[in-house]
Write a protein that binds this DNA or RNA. Sequence first.
DNA 1: CCGGCAGGTGTACGGCGTACACCTGCTGTC
DNA 2: GACAGCAGGTGTACGCCGTACACCTGCCGG
Lengths: 235, 235
Amino acid sequence: MVELTQQVDTARRAPLTRDRVLRAAVELADGTGIDALSMRKLAQALGVVPMALYKHVANKEELLDGMLDVVVGEIDPPAAGDGWQPAVRQRILSARRALLRHPWASRVLESRTAPTPVVLAYMDSMMGMFRSGGFSVDLTHHVMHAMGSRILGFSQELFGTPAAGSQDAAAGVDPETARQMAARFPYITEITTQVAHDDASVVGSGCDDQFEFEFSLDLLLDGFERLRREGWTSR
Amino acid sequence: MVELTQQVDTARRAPLTRDRVLRAAVELADGTGIDALSMRKLAQALGVVPMALYKHVANKEELLDGMLDVVVGEIDPPAAGDGWQPAVRQRILSARRALLRHPWASRVLESRTAPTPVVLAYMDSMMGMFRSGGFSVDLTHHVMHAMGSRILGFSQELFGTPAAGSQDAAAGVDPETARQMAARFPYITEITTQVAHDDASVVGSGCDDQFEFEFSLDLLLDGFERLRREGWTSR
DNA sequence: CCGGCAGGTGTACGGCGTACACCTGCTGTC
DNA sequence: GACAGCAGGTGTACGCCGTACACCTGCCGG
């Protein structure tokens, strides 16, 4: 009875919880981009006055931290069996999938100054994969540094997507500009023309991001394995 | 005479130029951090009303782009002689020095969506170093992707400096918290304690950033060289 | 029954980027 | 020399932001 009353009273709107706030924030950021995510807009989406949010998150920073925790929570746990290398590879690609589902997450991640416990736990389990794969404490340490943001599935390339609305690199520029470009940046031109030729089928920017990611991931992992076999140490 | 008059009239304040604006912005960001850099504060530092800036930069985005150009302009040109590997290494470490002089630059760089011509020129000359070092167009392309932000001298590690004012990782936490940490994050604990033991001399966070950077840089460069010798191709 | 408190509200403040109208003093033209 | 034009600095104002603080309300344990 009491429960019923409560349900009816608050039925005009489901009660706010930290979890509901975070999920709504993730959804909003997914849909409209992280720049459009303000406390006010989020509150509006939840049918609530802005200040109500502050009963569930201390401030916007903590909101962002919580959103990242949601994303990191979507990453698969380590796979059993296999060697360390396929297991690490697989998990990082899972992280990448999560990050691709929430394109704002990498930028937010970069802006954070301290990791949350959830992120720490992820890093810790990642280190565990190396350790139990036969890596020394020393090597594991440096290997984690070398992975950098790749450990979380994004590659921190400079200037990722050229922002919606801009022209196709190849198609959009007039011939004169193209000629000037070619003169000033011969090597860039060389590469872009070859790439454009190679994948006439693909519509996008011309670079296969997934390929690039796996290319450098494997380059690193192979390098790690080599060092491990050699018993590398920083002395 | 005319010149003299001009000097006197405007002597109350040196005339604003795009260059003066950019340099002042860099200086301000160096001194007070990028977050404290607003159009209003910058104008104040220049003894000018905020809107005056807009006669020299279109908007804040363009201001930031210009500031980055200043930083990238500080990077040494490619060294002649040597093989490709020492030359690339040397140049990237020069970029790193520039970025370290302006700690805000990497964060701003990450936030940019399109490169400026100055940055493009830098990238282009970097590609040139690989090409003339015997790399195929194909391999150069992927190698540039693999370098990611390292090409500009920063490593995009997650959670860099733990923000001024926070405690030393080792010294600041009470024993109880430390015990809980150790239980929840065994591998992190394992590494941090070993690091803390190794460099009892160093006061900082415990990680030698320069070492980590060069470690992964060389790992990548060695990998590149191996692929080049093997005549690697993406097919 | 009632005191407290968790959770939602309303108002307000200071800061931000920047649009727009304005003013002012130098410059090139006749 | 007169004057039009214009580059560059000013002032005001708008709409957004995060969030401090006081308030209200309705449920819950004693």
